[in-house]
C-alpha cells in the first residue's frame, strides 16, 4: 500500500506535549497558590482538610491509576493489531472515568449537604484559612473534574475511530495523544490527592 498523504506522527506528539505543558503550568500556578496560603494559615488548612472524605479520595486515586494502565495497554493492543482488545480496554477506561465522576458527585453532594459550597452562608462564617482551603478544594478538583469529562470525550472519539479502523496498527497517534491527555489527568490527581485529602 502506498501512502500519498503526508503524516507527521512525531510532530503530532510534540504538539500534544506542548499543550500538556500549558496544562501543567495552569495547575502548577494553582499549586503555588495552595502552597503559599497553606504556609500562611497552617492550622486552618489542617482543620479544613480533615473534613474531606479520605476514603472516597483513595478510591478515586486507585480508579485513576488503573484507568491509566488500561489506556496505556490499549495502545499496546492496537500496535499488535488486536482491535477487539484495544476497544475493550478503551471502553474500560471510559467506565473508570464515569466511576470517578460518580464518586465526585457523592463527595461534593455530601459537602453541599453540610452547607459547604462556594458562596454559602456557612462558608462565610468560617475562618479565613478554612474558607481559602475549601475555595481551592472546589476550584482545583472542579477544574480537574472538567478535564476528566474532556478526557472521556476524547476517549469516546478514539473508541469510535478504532471501531471504524481509522485508528489501526500503522496509524495510532491519535490514540497515543488521547492516552497522554488521560495520563495528564492522572498526574495532576497524584499531587492533588495527598495535598487536599491526606495532609490534615
Amino acid at each position: 500500500m502506498i501512502h500519498t498523504e503526508h503524516r507527521d506522527d512525531f510532530g503530532a506528539k510534540m504538539g500534544m506535549w506542548l499543550f500538556i505543558f500549558t496544562e501543567l503550568l495552569l495547575f502548577g500556578g494553582l499549586f503555588i497558590v495552595y502552597a503559599v496560603y497553606r504556609s500562611q494559615y497552617p492550622d486552618d488548612f489542617h482543620i479544613a482538610a480533615s473534613q474531606l472524605n479520605t476514603f472516597i479520595g483513595t478510591i478515586n486515586t486507585i480508579v485513576l491509576l488503573v484507568s491509566s494502565m488500561t489506556v496505556a495497554m490499549s495502545i499496546t493492543a492496537i500496535q499488535k493489531g488486536n482491535k477487539k482488545l484495544a476497544m475493550s480496554l478503551i471502553a474500560i477506561t471510559i467506565i473508570f472515568a464515569l466511576v470517578f465522576m460518580v464518586n465526585k458527585y457523592f463527595e461534593w453532594g455530601a459537602k453541599v449537604h453540610h452547607g459547604i459550597y462556594p458562596g454559602s452562608e456557612l462558608m462565610l462564617t468560617l475562618k479565613r484559612g478554612e474558607l481559602l482551603f475549601f475555595s481551592l478544594y472546589y476550584f482545583m478538583t472542579g477544574l480537574h473534574a472538567l478535564h476528566i469529562i474532556v478526557g472521556m470525550i476524547i476517549l469516546i472519539v478514539a473508541f469510535v475511530k478504532v471501531k471504524n479502523s481509522k485508528i489501526n496498527n500503522s496509524d495510532y497517534v491519535l490514540l497515543e495523544n488521547g492516552g497522554l491527555y488521560w495520563h495528564l489527568v492522572d498526574l495532576i490527581w497524584i499531587f492533588l490527592f495527598p495535598l487536599l485529602y491526606l495532609i490534615s
Binding site: S68, A72, G179, L180, H183, D186, L187, I190, F191
Partner: peptide
C-alpha cells in the same frame, strides 16, 4: 509522577 511519565507516557 516520574513513573507515570516514564512508562505510561512512554
Amino acid at each position: 509522577v516520574t513513573i507515570v511519565l516514564t512508562y505510561f507516557m512512554h
